[in-house]
């Protein structure tokens, strides 16, 4: 059994994350397109922005910080 690299909960369907952080990652990735259209930010700028905004949900922030720290998660294809 593997565990979420962020919170230690049981990992979701062979992912590195639990179901909450996995859902947060999915939301974060799918929202990028709208952000890109709205403000022409690069992926890295987008992640940086999410880390700075108070409105960002806690689980989304956890994932964004992990991406910022450079653990291998990259721009969605």
């Amino acid at each position: 059994m593997s565990f979420c690299t962020i919170c230690g909960r049981v990992a979701w369907n062979k992912s590195d994350f639990c179901r909450y952080h996995k859902e947060a990652l999915d939301g974060l990735q799918s929202s990028y397109e709208l952000w890109r259209k709205a403000s022409e930010l690069s992926w890295d700028e987008y992640i940086e922005k999410l880390c700075q905004i108070d409105e960002t949900g806690r689980w989304v922030l956890d994932v964004a910080e992990q991406i910022r720290s450079g653990d291998g998660l990259s721009t969605p294809t």
Partner: peptide, 12 residues
């Protein structure tokens, strides 16, 4: 709580 924690803000 889940909705709050999963929230991705959009800019306007």
């Amino acid at each position: 709580e889940q909705e709050v924690n999963l929230f991705v803000p959009y800019p306007f």
